[in-house]
Measured scan of single mutants.
Amino acid sequence: AEEIWQQSVIGDYLARFKNDRVKALKAMEMTWNNMEKKEKLMWIKKAAED
């Protein structure tokens, strides 16, 4: 689920960090860890469908 979420937001994060992939990935990891369980559930369901 986290991978699907990352694939959907990586472009936004890379743009925000001027294509600094290391910073973008760290920010994504922090965002994922801070997400509410119900927000993650949507992505977990999406992962299950694929």
Rank of each mutant, 00 (worst) to 15 (best):
W43C: 02
V22I: 13
Y13H: 02
A15H: 10
M35N: 01
I4H: 08
L14R: 02
A1T: 03
A48Q: 14
E49V: 08
I44T: 05
M35G: 01
A47F: 11
L14I: 05
W32M: 00
E2W: 14
M28D: 00
A47C: 05
K46T: 06
E29T: 09
L41K: 05
K40G: 01
E29V: 08
V9E: 02
S8W: 10
E36L: 05
A47N: 05
W5M: 00
E2N: 09
E49H: 09
A15Y: 08
A27N: 05
S8A: 13
K18H: 13
K26W: 08
I4Q: 07
Q7E: 09
A48F: 13
A48E: 12
A47I: 06
R21M: 12
M28I: 04
W5Y: 04
N19P: 04
F17L: 03
V9S: 03
K23S: 11
I10D: 01
A15K: 12
A27D: 04
N33Q: 13
I4N: 07
K38I: 10
D20N: 08
K45D: 09
S8E: 06
R16P: 01
W5N: 01
A15W: 08
E39A: 05
W32T: 00
N34L: 07
K37W: 15
A47D: 04
L25D: 04
A48K: 11
Q6R: 14
V22N: 11
K38Y: 11
K26F: 09
K18E: 13
K46W: 07
E39Y: 05
M42R: 14
W5Q: 00
E39N: 04
V9G: 01
Q6N: 06
D12M: 10
K45P: 03
Q7K: 13
E39Q: 06
N33R: 12
Q6L: 07
M42S: 11
G11H: 14
S8L: 07
F17H: 07
A15E: 12
E29C: 07
A15L: 14
K40P: 00
E36C: 06
A47T: 04
M28G: 00
E39D: 10
A15G: 08
V9L: 04
L25I: 11
T31N: 06
A27F: 08
E2V: 11
K40M: 03
K37H: 15
A15R: 13
A47Q: 05
A47R: 03
Q7N: 11
E3G: 08
S8C: 12
E3P: 05
M28E: 00
V22Q: 13
M35F: 03
A48H: 09
D12A: 09
M35K: 02
L14W: 02
A27Q: 06
E29L: 11
W43P: 02
W43V: 02
T31H: 11
M28T: 01
K18G: 12
E29H: 10
K45V: 09
K18L: 10
N34D: 07
E3S: 13
I4R: 08
R21Q: 07
I44H: 08
Q7V: 08
W43L: 03
K23Y: 04
M42T: 08
M42V: 12
L14C: 08
A1N: 03
K40H: 03
W32P: 00
V9K: 04
Y13W: 04
M30W: 14
Q7R: 14
A15T: 12
I10L: 11
R21C: 14
R16W: 07
W5V: 00
V22K: 10
W5G: 00
D20K: 02
K46Y: 07
D12G: 09
W43K: 02
I44N: 05
L41W: 07
K23C: 07
M35S: 01
R16F: 11
L25Y: 13
E2Q: 13
Y13S: 00
D50R: 15
K26Q: 12
Y13A: 02
R21E: 07
V9D: 01
R21G: 06
Q7S: 10
I10H: 03
K46Q: 06
D50Y: 14
A24M: 06
N33D: 09
W43E: 02
A48N: 10
N33M: 11
M30S: 09
N33L: 12
E49K: 11
W5S: 00
G11Y: 11
L41G: 06
